[in-house]
Simulated assay, not measured.
Amino acid sequence: MSAIYDELKAILLAKSVRTGEFTLASGAKSDLYIDCRVTALDPVGARLIGQLGWAAVREKIQNDGLNIDAIGGMTMGADPISLAVGMTSAMEHPEEMLQVFNIRKEPKGHGRGKQIEGNFKEGDQVVVVDDVITTGGSTLKAIDAIEAAGGTVKFALVLVDREEGGRQAIEERGIPVVALYSRATLLGE
């Protein structure tokens, strides 16, 4: 897996990581901006995310004796990651295949008024996904939506942990976090 880890890291650094002065979604100022969507929507990046993400998810499932039905998170950042991991699970271990869902920022204003779309149902045990965590706010919002719809979040899969308190906020809710990369591992800090 180290070759896959290194290859994905190189793509993240080339396409998704920028240094400078930025205002984040939280309103905070930062010297680091990470747009994982550029990597996750790259065909090679998506393949590598699927392989690395599924290996991490499967290891957590096996180590903790979990039964997981589905994987998903807040649209837009979680969508390609969730799909890549779900597709890899179906290809590598069809008997353990994860269904994929996404969560709208707000429930639909028409039709059935659903907030969670795709392959999710009440009672599902799920992995919540986020591309980047800073404060953990969007991941916590996803957890709230899943719980409100009758699902149980067993752990979070995050592509990059910025190491700015988000992991701690999520883990304070009793949700372990599995991060594929951190600020330190990406930037060699």
Rank of each mutant, 00 (worst) to 15 (best):
R112W: 13
L52C: 00
G27F: 11
M1C: 11
A156P: 01
K114P: 04
A148W: 10
V17P: 02
I61A: 01
F22P: 09
E7T: 05
T152R: 14
I175C: 05
K121M: 13
V128M: 12
T134P: 01
Q99A: 11
P176V: 07
D130N: 07
E21T: 14
E172N: 12
E7P: 06
R112D: 15
A148R: 15
P94K: 06
E96Y: 05
L140E: 02
S16C: 02
L8K: 08
Y181A: 09
G27R: 07
G50L: 03
G166L: 10
G113V: 04
A14N: 10
H93C: 09
K154P: 03
A156L: 05
D124C: 10
E189L: 13
D64E: 15
V85I: 15
P107Q: 10
V160S: 00
S2Y: 12
M97H: 08
G174K: 08
E117N: 13
K29S: 14
G188L: 11
C36P: 06
D35P: 00
E7G: 01
E172R: 11
Y5G: 05
K15I: 06
V153K: 05
C36L: 05
E92R: 05
M76E: 09
G86Q: 04
S30P: 06
A55Y: 03
V85A: 02
D79T: 09
V44A: 12
K108H: 00
V57H: 00
R37K: 13
P176A: 04
V132Y: 10
A3G: 07
T75E: 14
L48E: 00
E92L: 13
G113E: 12
Q99G: 09
E147F: 11
V132L: 05
R112Y: 14
F101H: 01
K121A: 09
V132W: 10
I116A: 11
G165E: 12
T139F: 10
H110R: 08
G72P: 03
V126S: 00
T185V: 06
I170T: 03
K108W: 07
L32V: 00
A90K: 14
A184I: 02
K60P: 03
E21G: 01
Q62C: 08
L157F: 15
V44Q: 14
G73M: 08
Q62S: 12
I61N: 00
G27W: 11
I34T: 04
C36E: 08
E7M: 09
T19M: 15
T139L: 15
T39A: 11
E172L: 11
G45R: 03
K60I: 01
S138W: 03
T152L: 14
G174C: 10
V85R: 00
S182C: 06
R47G: 08
Q125L: 06
